[in-house]
Structures are given as structure tokens and as C-alpha cells.
Amino acid sequence: MSETILVTGAAGQLGQRVIHHLIETYKVAPGQIVAATRSPEKLAGLASKGVATRKADFDDAASLEQAFTGIDRLLIISTDALDTPGKRLAQHKAAVAAAAKAGVKHIAYTSMPAPDNSLVTFAPDHLGTENAIKASGIAYTIIRNAWYHDNYLHSMPHNLQGGKWYSATGDGKVATISRDDCALAIAAALAAGTSESATYTLTGAESLNNREIAVIVSEASGKPLEVVDVNDEQLGQGMRGAGLPGFVADMLVSADANIRAGNFDIVTEDFTRLAGKQLQSLKDFFVAHKAALTASDNAGGH
């Protein structure tokens, strides 16, 4: 395959892993990969491997069109502009428009499970972006990433120190997946060179409720963990009290509400379909990250 693949958000955690898997796992030549970000100087490590780097600023449509010129396959990794409602969707729409102008042949996009049936604050960004991509007429691969195993590493060290996990998910279940496994499947989709349009939902192999997750965390860390049920208001107040910005607290509360409503209780085999292997279970992930879970200096939890 001699297509040129561009990855936006290439300095971010997901972007770095996607490019790693393109080169190391799927043996895509570095010269066929373009890494793009607001600050290309952060990509020196990739440039030294032979990956081309370009500046792509989602707030500057001209820079996007310039970055996407000569690109066959574009991966738009959703931006982190969550503090201003509507900003992220505007950025994504600008990227889709720029891709159309630049003559990109295929767009891949990182979305979330069931964005059309979601209580999560940022779900409309994803749904609106998916619709913009479909309306562009460009062939697409939409990859809906479930909640990451990795997200628990922000709060679990703090929870384990006190032995309590305040949760508003009730009996709701979620099938989480590691960020690295998402990157692996995304890289597989990019490297496959398909001209078909498709939507995949990447989830874990089993859906778990908070008490089942607490048992796994406890066994992996060797520390007791009790789930304490709270309501949305209590959860939001606790997070704000711990110093989280309001929009982050609101987002996390909405994610718990979405789990409680059953909207994240989705299990697919799309990961195996794309990557052709078994994914890392939550248990194996926690065992592999035991040091991070039990780090006593992570008292803030984020």
C-alpha cells in the first residue's frame, strides 16, 4: 500500500500509539505517514524515524487544508477542546471541510459508543462530527472507542488510599478497553487501505458494574476498595471540592449517568475483527499498572 496516512493529534497519547502501531505492528513505511499537531516541534522523535510532520491547528481552517494536501487517508482524532460547548464540533467540521477541499480520499474518526443515545456531555460533538463526515461524501471509517481502562488510573489511586470509591453508576455496566488496544485497532483500519465506509465500536469483552470493577482493582492492587453509592449532585460536588474544573466534573458525572442508564452496556467483537487478536482485559490492565494504582504520591487522584 502506497497511500499517505495523516494522523491529527499526533502528540497526544492516542495519536502516538496509533503511529507506533502503524510502524511497528503493521509495518507501514514511516515515509508514508504524516504526523500533524498544533506544535510540530513536539514530534521530533517521530521525525527522527522518518515520519513527516506538519502543523495542523483546528482553529485555523487554512492550516488544516494545507496540512491535508496530498493525503489519501486522514485520521481525525477528536480534539480536547471540551471547556467551551460547541467548540470541538466546530473544529471537527472545519477539519472535514478542509479534507474535502484538499481531496482526501478516506476519513477515519475517533468517536464514542452510541453517541445518538447518550447522556455524556460531549456526545453531541461526536454525533455532529459523524454526520458531517457522512454528509461530505468522502468514504469513511468511524471508530467508536468505549471508555478507556486508562481513565480509572486518574481516580483509583486516590480511591484506594481512602478505601472508598464514590460512584453514581448504580447497577449500570460498562465494557471498557485499553487506549493502546483502541490504537492498535485504529492502526489496523488505517493500514487495511479499505475504500468501503464502515462504523466500528471498540469495547471490552465483558460489561462490568462498579462492584465487579472494585473487586478487580482490589485484587490487582492488594488494597481493599468499597463502593459508596452517591447521586449525581453529590458526585459533582465531591469532584469540584477536589479541585476539578467544573466542565470536567460535569463530564464525569454525565459519564456515570450514562453508565447508570445502560447506554455504555455495549459489547462488540469489532476489536478482534479489526486487530485479529484478543484484547487486554481490565484485570490484566490493572495488574500491568499496579505501580500506578498503588502510588501514594498520587494523592490528588488526577
Rank of each mutant, 00 (worst) to 15 (best):
A220Q: 08
L22D: 11
T25R: 14
E206R: 12
G50H: 06
F247K: 01
I186D: 08
L279K: 10
M239Q: 15
D171W: 00
I33A: 04
I76P: 05
H289I: 01
G243K: 06
L119E: 11
S111L: 06
S218R: 09
I5M: 12
H289Y: 03
T203P: 07
Q13S: 13
E206W: 00
A44I: 12
D284T: 13
A205T: 15
S207L: 03
G103K: 06
T8H: 09
T37D: 14
T121D: 14
G45F: 06
H92F: 02
T141P: 04
I216L: 15
A102L: 04
A214F: 09
S197D: 05
L127P: 10
S218L: 07
A97C: 05
V51K: 03
L282N: 03
G172T: 10
Y140W: 13
E226H: 03
I259L: 05
V215H: 10
I266K: 02
G172I: 08
A67Y: 09
H106R: 14
Q91V: 02
T268D: 10
A52W: 00
I213S: 08
M1L: 11
D297A: 09
D270C: 05
D80I: 09
L208A: 03
F271N: 08
D57H: 02
E219I: 01
E206F: 00
H149D: 13
N263K: 10
H149S: 09
I19T: 10
L64C: 11
I186Y: 05
L274N: 07
N117G: 02
I71P: 02
R54C: 01
D57C: 03
G241S: 11
D232N: 15
L293F: 01
A102T: 06
T25E: 14
S111F: 03
V51M: 04
R260E: 13
R260V: 06
A36C: 08
S2N: 15
A295W: 01
S281A: 05
L64R: 05
L279R: 13
H92K: 07
P245D: 08
K87Y: 00
T25G: 12
E24V: 10
F264L: 14
N159G: 02
G262Q: 05
Q278H: 06
I138M: 05
D284V: 03
A44N: 14
T203H: 04
A295H: 01
G222L: 03
H154S: 13
T69L: 04
A114F: 01
K87M: 10
A132H: 10
L6T: 07
V104K: 01
I133P: 10
A44E: 15
R17E: 15
I216Y: 05
L190S: 04
P85T: 10
K42Y: 05
V174Q: 11
T194F: 00
G12P: 09
L274E: 08
A94S: 15
P40E: 05
G193P: 09
D171R: 07
A95D: 10
P85I: 11
T79A: 15
Q278F: 00
I142E: 06
T121R: 09
F264Y: 12
A100W: 00
L14K: 02
A11Y: 04
W147K: 00
E233W: 01
A299F: 14
S155G: 15
S48V: 01
S167T: 09
M112D: 06
L14V: 13
G50P: 08
G222F: 03
A67C: 07
I138Q: 06
T53E: 03
